[in-house]
């Protein structure tokens, strides 16, 4: 059984691409065969976050237009067994692909016996968004604890449900425990109360993400960092495992200790 999961947010810069890379890589680490699809045509980035930017020959638009076979465009990540990337085209725009073509592409990927197909959706609610969700079986909405990101997430949840993608789950990204404790940042409960959807995971605002992205190595592989742990938990929940949400604000003592330890490294 293969499943197509779209990672979306509405607002840009909340961490769709980073989350896609980490979920994809994390699923591959648990032995699954995973295809990461960059649907952000014209603003290709998943390749560089994954550290695969030098290996691109063909892209998504080439596959859709029949310039190459699907297998030729899929880049095999040599570091993680079972992980493949289908990069976006950089010199084209969102109109180069239609929702029907994306649906067909997802079907073809399913025939390649991928367990999971992760689609990195572009920001916005226009053509690129419609393309990215067209072939999806379920959706994960990314937000940060800021008014703008939560508002956009609410809009996206409405649009997803209108398109038949019911019950999307939420990843709350870049949570800062110190600010939540001071009452200067909305907490996990605040955000889930407002958006009224199930939470899939919480990723703390962690320097390790920047470091990992600099190197082109997803943070999910980092055993030391909280963000890495958070992504591994998300991966387990995607596969149906019941893992409690890390309540950073409640065991802040432990968090601070580990956070400090990490900062020293």
């Amino acid at each position: 059984m293969s499943e197509v999961i779209v990672i979306t947010s509405g607002k840009g810069g909340v961490g769709k691409t980073t989350t896609s890379a980490n979920i994809g890589c994390g699923l591959a680490l648990t032995g699954k065969k995973v295809a990461l699809v960059d649907a952000d045509i014209g603003l290709r980035n998943l390749d560089v976050v994954m550290g695969l930017e030098n290996r691109i020959v063909y892209d998504l638009v080439d596959v859709v237009e029949g310039n190459c076979r699907l297998k030729q465009a899929l880049i095999k990540d040599k570091r993680y067994n079972g992980l493949f990337l289908l990069p976006a085209a950089q010199t084209r725009d969102k109109d180069a692909v239609s929702p029907e073509q994306m649906q067909k592409l997802c079907e073809s990927l399913k025939e390649e016996e991928f367990d999971y197909i992760i689609i990195d959706c572009p920001a916005g609610i226009e053509q690129g968004f419609k393309n990215a969700i067209a072939g999806a079986d379920r959706a994960i909405v990314i937000t940060t604890p800021e008014v703008s990101a939560v508002r956009d997430a609410d809009r996206i949840i409405g649009l997803l449900e209108a398109s038949g993608l019911n019950d999307p789950t939420l990843v709350l990204n870049r949570l800062r425990v110190d600010m939540v404790k001071r009452g200067d940042m909305m907490s996990i409960d605040d955000v889930t109360e407002i958006l009224a959807i199930e939470i899939l995971g919480v990723v703390p605002d962690d320097e390790s993400i920047v470091v990992a992205t600099n190197k082109g190595e997803p943070a999910v592989t980092d055993e030391e960092s909280f963000a890495g742990q958070a992504y591994r938990n998300i991966v387990k929940r995607i596969q149906g495992e019941d893992v409690p949400i890390m309540r950073f604000e409640k065991d802040a003592g432990l968090f601070n200790k580990l956070f400090k330890k990490f900062r020293r490294n």
């Binding site: 508002r151 809009r155 409405g158 009452g183 940042m185 407002i194």
Partner: peptide
Amino acid sequence: NTASKNVAKDRLKLVLVHDR
């Protein structure tokens, strides 16, 4: 409510009611 997160929550709730 002095905490800024409560201001954020109240503003968001109001704007979302209108959006929805």
